[in-house]
Amino acid sequence: MRITRIGGPTVLIEWMGWRILTDPTFDAPGRTYSFGLGTSSRKTAGPAIQLDEVGDVDIVLLSHHQHADNLDDAGRAGLSRASTVVTTVAGAKALGHPHARGLESGAKTLMIDSGRPTITVVATPCRHGPPLTRPIVGPATGFALTLEGADRPGLWVTGDTVLYGGLRRAAAGLEPDVAIVNIGAVKFPLTGPLAYTMDAAAAVELIELAAPGIVVPAHVEGWSHFTEQEEAAAAVFAGAPAAVRERIRWLPLGDPVDVM
């Protein structure tokens, strides 16, 4: 599996002949985006690789469509270069992509193509904020991808989520080969200490539960509302138990890395 970290939540995964892109964000930096109810964020860094350099992809795994730090204008336009988009039910309805598949948590869909192994994609739980905020922030989803014939996922993408009971239960014993874990501790001045994504300390607990072979942190830089960015998160991971610390792989931005 080859992974290229592009920036924010955007990662290109090349795996067994499949090209998979997560949460496309390709706008230039400097713009401030509204996130609703008086909240906003400024994009502070552009993508390490431009959309044209990425080219066509087979699958976009879109955790949710309603926030620009997971799908900005250039990313939305670039969905036309994806053969299939897998996202939430609400996202599939909103996007207008001819091959968008919307999944409720726990539902699955098959990626089938002659000459490549079939991939089963299962939607994993996400809660993109404190309890009872879903009507405000909207739905989100993660993704567990398992190759045909395998007994556990080869890839898990957490999506944007806080750590809560439903995620703990889904993660326990999951044991994916590779986990892309979205962190960043998203917060807004208007809502004070309330967090909308995990911080690194929560990610440590999640990693202990899921026991992935390799962990690639993402969604940790490039936006002003990410309150715990890479340096701070790396310090937390450095102090984590060895069973977690030794799994973490900080990938350089823009460079493809063979992780397994």
Rank of each mutant, 00 (worst) to 15 (best):
R2S: 08
R2T: 13
I3K: 00
R5L: 13
G8E: 09
T10V: 06
V11H: 02
I13M: 00
E14S: 04
E14M: 03
W15E: 08
I20P: 04
T22Q: 05
D27G: 10
D27A: 09
D27H: 08
A28M: 14
P29S: 07
R31D: 06
T32C: 07
S34M: 02
S34N: 12
F35W: 10
G36Q: 06
G36E: 06
L37A: 13
G38F: 11
K43D: 01
T44V: 11
A45P: 10
A45F: 05
P47S: 01
A48C: 09
D56S: 07
D58S: 06
L62M: 06
H65Y: 04
L71P: 01
D73A: 12
G75T: 08
V89H: 07
A90Y: 14
G91S: 11
A92T: 11
A92K: 12
A92I: 08
K93G: 05
A94I: 03
L95E: 04
H97V: 06
H99R: 13
R101V: 14
G102T: 02
L103E: 15
S105V: 14
G106W: 02
K108A: 08
K108C: 09
T109R: 07
G115D: 12
R116F: 05
T118W: 09
T118R: 15
I119K: 15
I119A: 14
T120W: 00
A123N: 00
A123Q: 01
A123K: 03
A123P: 02
C126R: 03
R127V: 11
G129I: 08
P131Y: 03
P131L: 03
P131M: 05
G142L: 07
A144C: 02
L147W: 00
A150W: 02
P153F: 04
V157C: 02
T161Q: 09
L167I: 12
R168W: 07
A171G: 13
A172G: 14
P176Y: 01
P176L: 04
V178W: 01
I183G: 01
A185L: 13
P189Q: 05
P193K: 09
A195Y: 01
T197N: 01
D199G: 15
A201H: 12
A202R: 14
V204D: 07
E205Y: 03
A210S: 14
P212V: 04
V216T: 08
A218Q: 03
A218F: 05
V220L: 10
V220Y: 07
E221R: 14
W223T: 04
H225E: 10
F226P: 07
F226M: 09
E228H: 05
A233T: 09
A234F: 10
A235G: 10
V236D: 03
A242E: 15
R245S: 12
R247D: 04
I248W: 08
I248P: 03
W250H: 06
L251R: 10
L251G: 08
L253I: 07
V257E: 03
M260R: 15
